[in-house]
Nucleic acid binder design. Structure first.
Lengths: 340, 340
DNA sequence: TTGTAGGCGTTATCAT
DNA sequence: ATGATAACGCCTACAA
């Protein structure tokens, strides 16, 4: 009993303490506990207990190549959608005996690149990425080295990987159908700039196509949310033209819904009379009178689905798959048209 | 050029490719690049480039004992406050050359225990924990083994570690001062059960103490939020007694604010006339008319502060410190008393 | 059922 | 300035 803090004990010390060999201890903590005699098991258990022994995962992974780590790279960790998916991912990882290493790029391509390298250096056995930039090159390298890869929400043109996310086309269709059924005829679609992320592009295109197909008048605004002024003008202009009771705003994601709601309320618009529908469910949507209708993404399912993809591509090097999840319409007052 | 996917290249291969020794390559990727001749440097750089070499962190950590990993264990990853702090932590970690491994316990003590063991097995060099249960024993073991530890938001009685979080007493005092100044006299304090987390306890006690000191009438409700009915009754009962224009509700955290707002609105209460003040700033607080006043926590600062603690306790084994951060009052309509 | 020996990729030590 | 070599803690043949 020394004055210095306990050193971390190793397998060797446990072995000595238990009067056994390293191998036996290794077996005890591995998947071969059964093969050990009961006596041996207790001796090892006691010794390990006394020494506070925990196998060193680093050493373990070095030898066997099993880091038991899954990496997740997200573009915006403060986005509730991201967090909700993360939650599903983490649960699924735990269920499969993996741990999750989450890194946040804050939508910065340079950081993304660095973090990708980092994750690789920890030899993650699978990678789930919600891409900020277009790190195709790096990702392809990882794939070539045998790391299973799943693209979350945002696709990347040149990378061959599984994709998991919302069924964007379906979501837009559901939105348009709902708005039309509620009697709205003039639609304003609000999105962030579509270049940066594939779903934005898909949703926008589908919106325009869908409006035509249904004989609806559709306009789109896709500037950065940072430019509050532009957004504000777009909305105000939309509010002044044509009949009220005919007009509805469709928000491409949760951030947009937040920004748009702010402006709509400031402009004195009455929700419902002016329709408002958002993609992404947020916990405050029911609070803003008369409630904001949303298309909720099945975030948990998406997260689990992503991990399932990873696990599948570990076994057989299967072809990349696509998993498009359907949203759920949550109807509230903001699309209950009082003057249809 | 084989048909099989690229194997991950090792330091040895790079050494061969560059016509150098493992040592030189190691030096190149370590902190001793300077010591190498320019020629050597380029040769290694080129070789590494061509082979797509990245040092294996696992091996690195095995040898040197430096995992370059910080662990963070949070009780509820879907809580925006948690995520905001996480963001600060991650930034600070990156700035110090560390990576962050985040684990979520979902407020489950058993999971917490397991995840703690896990983090230990990855030999994290520091641990930030937002405790769900009371894993004092395990934590003390970690501390004894030399792992710097920081308690986030929630303290633990028997563990000797630094604590970082809100200045709870100050926050309550600020809340009471503000409410009193706005003319509210009867206060209802809404909290989650205080046993589970130390700040809840501190806040509750301070509330009761503070009301007395100021001559305010204070009631408290601290049942689980799951029991919507009980909460609802408490609020409704509070609304019916005494004069309106005198009454205000104080919410102990963001979750409570959400639940309470829901009920207040459903009860037809007019915010402002009935005061509402919440601890934790949420992005929807300005949306719910006439805006919900909050005490915002400096989440980024708290996160950074936590990492700073970690770094400090690595160098010298300094005594545990306490860092209580002051909140910021964001006044909105919900405490602008129209009938003072 | 148990033990022995070698090596995973890296860094540290000691040469040269 | 550069290299050879021995650990780091563990796992996995192979042997007994």
């Amino acid at each position: 009993m020394t004055a210095t803090p306990h050193q971390r004990s190793t397998i060797l010390e446990v072995a000595r303490e238990a009067g056994a060999s390293k191998t036996s201890v290794s077996r005890y903590f591995g998947d071969e506990r059964e093969r050990l005699s009961p006596g041996m098991q207790t001796r090892i258990a006691t010794a390990a207990q006394r020494l506070g022994y925990r196998p060193n995962q680093m050493a373990r992974s070095l030898k066997g190549g099993h880091s038991r780590l899954v990496g997740m790279l997200v573009a915006d960790i403060r986005n509730p959608f991201t967090v909700a998916v993360m939650h599903g991912v983490e649960q699924a990882c735990q269920a499969h005996g993996y741990s999750l290493m989450v890194c946040n790029t804050d939508n910065d391509a340079a950081r993304e690149s660095a973090l990708l390298a980092l994750l690789a250096s920890y030899r993650v056995e699978g990678l789930i990425i919600n891409a900020a930039g277009s790190p195709d090159q790096q990702l392809q390298t990882l794939v070539d080295q045998g790391t299973p890869l799943v693209l979350l929400d945002r696709e990347l043109g040149r990378t061959e990987a599984s994709v998991v996310g919302l069924d964007n086309a379906l979501a837009i269709d559901m939105a348009l159908d709902h708005l039309q059924a509620q009697g709205y005829r003039r639609l304003l679609y609000l999105s962030e700039p579509p270049e940066q992320a594939s779903p934005r592009h898909v949703r926008l295109a589908r919106f325009q196509h869908g409006c035509e197909a249904r004989g609806l008048t559709g306009h789109a605004h896709d500037q950065s949310l940072e430019d509050t002024e532009a957004l504000s003008q777009a909305i105000r202009h939309f509010l002044t033209e044509g009949d009220s009771g005919q007009k509805a705003v469709l928000c491409a994601n949760g951030n947009v819904t937040l920004a748009a709601t702010r402006i709509l309320l400031a402009s004195g618009a009455r929700l419902g009379e002016t329709g408002l529908l958002g993609i992404d469910e947020l916990d405050w949507c029911e609070l803003v009178a008369p409630g904001i209708s949303t298309l909720a993404q099945p975030t948990d399912a998406i997260g689990r689905s992503a991990v399932a993809c990873l696990m599948r591509s570990q076994d057989n090097d299967a072809t990349p798959t696509r998993h498009r999840h359907a949203p759920t319409l949550i109807m509230r007052g903001s699309t209950r048209n009082t003057r249809p």
